[in-house]
């Protein structure tokens, strides 16, 4: 126990910095993934054929082992002299976040009660009005669930980013492994878990806060 206290005392500011670095990497990746995934998911509801293709590609992407995907990123981004570091890690995380976000958005909008949609059209809403006034609000909890999945996946996979020099909490774990230092490994793992729980908690709060009361169940 005393050893732990000492370890944390010496390393606390470094752990904190790495946690922030991890959070920023994942946060930015999610932001961009949202900007791509949500509109794409919504668009796909109007194009069944494309929807099937896109969802399949996104599924396949999620099955690629993360280490392999990061590996592929390196030569690709070497072309623009960004082979290691933030950029390839960031791009890989954006790709991983796509499936849950696109799929949940697509499914949520598709599953809006057809009679509700019918009423919206019959009352004379234009497609955009219908989307923002009826479809998105009613699809919101399911879309948020997709975002939460993406965030948790990304925080976990973000650990691998350390291998390609993007920093983050993975640094503690990779160093711990190479030095045989269990303190580092455990600290890194626990920090990742805590970060994931906090992020999920915040998102869950947002989800509850902005879900219309009457569709909460």
């Amino acid at each position: 126990m005393e050893k732990w206290m000492k370890f944390l005392e010496v390393n606390s500011s470094r752990i904190f910095d790495l946690t922030i670095e991890h959070a920023i990497l994942v946060g930015l990746a999610i932001l961009v993934a949202l900007l791509i995934g949500v509109p794409l998911g919504i668009y796909l509801t109007t194009n069944d054929y494309l929807a099937e293709t896109v969802l399949q590609i996104a599924s396949v992407m999620l099955t690629i082992p993360s280490i392999a995907l990061f590996g592929v990123m390196i030569p690709v981004f070497s072309i623009v002299n960004q082979g290691i570091g933030f950029v390839p890690a960031f791009v890989a995380l954006v790709l991983y976040a796509q499936l849950p976000i696109i799929r949940n958005t697509y499914t949520a909008i598709r599953n809006v009660n057809p009679q509700m949609r019918d009423a919206a059209i019959g009352l004379g809403m234009k497609p955009i009005q219908r989307l923002f006034r009826v479809e998105i609000p009613n699809a919101f909890p399911v879309i948020m669930a997709g975002i939460r999945t993406a965030v948790v996946i990304n925080i976990g996979i973000g650990v691998i980013a350390a291998y390609i020099g993007a920093g983050g909490l993975g640094v503690l774990i990779t160093q711990g492994i190479s030095r045989g230092d269990n303190y580092l490994i455990i600290t890194g793992s626990v920090a990742v878990a805590i970060l994931a729980m906090i992020a999920d908690g915040i998102l869950l709060w947002i989800q509850k806060r902005f879900t219309p009361k009457s569709i909460a169940n």
Binding site: Q115, M116, D118, A119, A120, G122, L123, R133, V134, P137, N138, P212, S214, I215
Partner: peptide, 11 residues
């Protein structure tokens, strides 16, 4: 326009 299941928007 009125429909059977009233089509009110829950949000």
């Amino acid at each position: 326009y009125v429909i059977q299941s009233n089509g009110l928007f829950p949000n």
